[in-house]
Design a binder for these strands. Sequence first.
DNA 1: CGTAAATTTTAAAGCGCTTTCAATAGTGCA
DNA 2: TGCACTATTGAAAGCGCTTTAAAATTTACG
Lengths: 333, 333
Amino acid sequence: MSQTTVSRALGGYPEVNPKTRARIVQAAEQFGYRPDKRARSLATGRSFNIGHVLTSRNKTELVNPIFGDFIGGLTETSSAVGYSLSLTLTEAAQEEAIYRKLKSEGAVDGVVLQLPRPNDPRIALLKEIGLPFVVHGRSTNVTTEYAWVDVNNRRAFERATQFLLDLGHTRIGLINGDETMDYAMRRRSGFEDTLKAAGVEADPQLMSRGFMTEDNGHAIARDFLSRPDRPTALLTSSVILAIGARRAIQEANLTMGKDVSLVCYDDDLSYLSNRQTVPVFTAVRSSVLLAGQEIAKMLIKQIEEPDSELSHVLLEAELVVGQSTGPVSKPFI
Amino acid sequence: MSQTTVSRALGGYPEVNPKTRARIVQAAEQFGYRPDKRARSLATGRSFNIGHVLTSRNKTELVNPIFGDFIGGLTETSSAVGYSLSLTLTEAAQEEAIYRKLKSEGAVDGVVLQLPRPNDPRIALLKEIGLPFVVHGRSTNVTTEYAWVDVNNRRAFERATQFLLDLGHTRIGLINGDETMDYAMRRRSGFEDTLKAAGVEADPQLMSRGFMTEDNGHAIARDFLSRPDRPTALLTSSVILAIGARRAIQEANLTMGKDVSLVCYDDDLSYLSNRQTVPVFTAVRSSVLLAGQEIAKMLIKQIEEPDSELSHVLLEAELVVGQSTGPVSKPFI
DNA sequence: CGTAAATTTTAAAGCGCTTTCAATAGTGCA
DNA sequence: TGCACTATTGAAAGCGCTTTAAAATTTACG
């Protein structure tokens, strides 16, 4: 059998006699033969890798809680169609250099961009160097066209806030993520605008932002709850923050869901389930694992059909009512 | 300039005139030239990838909490020396096939093995197919030589148990991970043996195992604490389990650190810090991120110096005393 | 049965590097 | 100045595939 025929038989090309193909496939199986990925990459000009660049601004941020589930989603989908996920880590200052390198080395066929900020320069960069990409999230003020998958963060926080307003809460504390990130800005404006629409003035003293650790959730909630006009409800940007806030509530001898209501954003992380019959936390939920799957699918399509339109997916978070919310009970009556 | 000289200049070979090299390096920089990774791989027979295979036994296990930090550690070290981490996901039944494929395709230069069970067949398999690997953990009953990095899990649980015994606790509940895994078996025997050595009989009713979710920690602790002869102390295999257990303690109107002591194993996850001035949880701690770094270093050395000895690293967990433990207070006096 | 068309197979070029081996330029010393 | 040697550079082969173009075989049909 010639090289060519084998390649075509295994590659699934049509112009090969079914009998020949069967024979080749059988032989390949028997001897455990598989086309060398390196040679294949060189010949086709494709690497069958999708890239993801992690930047280490600092150790706390290096590995964020959603990282595992997100990567899991990406990997699940890309593995199924023969791509693997290629991870690289770099200092934030080197990020541009890394993308250029990935491109010129031909190390990846496309990349996934995470945690965009407003006007994120990486988008223009990737367009310039011609590396296909999909953004997890959106970047405010970027007017050029790019593919993205995002949760409707603004709407999610509007719904969460409205839900608390409907229960009678007007003193609501916000414990948000890093507000230099686009997603956190959208959440905050969803929160503020809903309050305003209800004629409630947002108290800057009750709006915080920062790393989304259990510790921070605890510290901020404790601070909020120690104020004379303490909030009757808290809204947090993650389950981990909520767990910290719950600790602060309990330490203040208050009861969650009664004295203090708590709503959180829930990424539906597989190891931090909030999916009990009646969930512990009332939440706006959207699975980051699913987002990862969607992004991988979209990126691979873009790689394999470069002329197809760039697409966008806006996921809506669902509101799930759990045990952590209840009608307002005025603290000082 | 000839192909050859350029390759040598950029590759750092000694037999090239310093002036020539400088000129080439400068030109490469100017034009953004970098050797194509695919061609380089084909020519050298190396892929400059290290592989990690995830198996999806089920969704809950797909992404475990330590996954992110572990990957972060691997990536940090391997990126620094020009390797990238290549992730693949497969069903458990396909795991052997995937390793064979990675080898025959030349997709990776080596792999990292996680969560070994006793007598883990993957070790023999990888030796057979000749793919360099390092195990995160050890596999009981495997007598052949292999490289590993492990925490002294047995010792860690001995120390944790002894610490509780020293505080006067004898009714101690164990909330362990999946005991078909080697690490969890070692933890359990460390626990049991220490009790036995102190003349305390371990109560099978107070030893549980399972997925390490917040929910499970809560459910198991609630069960334990509802018994007439409830434990005065709990020992959990992860911080997330401990957080669930804390919730159960509080719901039972007990005070952690006073009515019920709690010690946990702490992987020092970056987003689940237990490093406050006085840590919330008393814990035996060992950073999984550091383990990832160590493993990457070891694997790359094995790849680049195939004749070097296989090495082993046994990390000791440190005992950190936090707010969650105190002397026993008899519940029924 | 012969020839044109369709189907199937093969030879050979090329992907962009590394590496072996040969060639050339440079150096020290008699 | 010339020779042996060393330092430096270059030509060419080869890594293992895919793909183009050509050859061989089969099929269709008058």
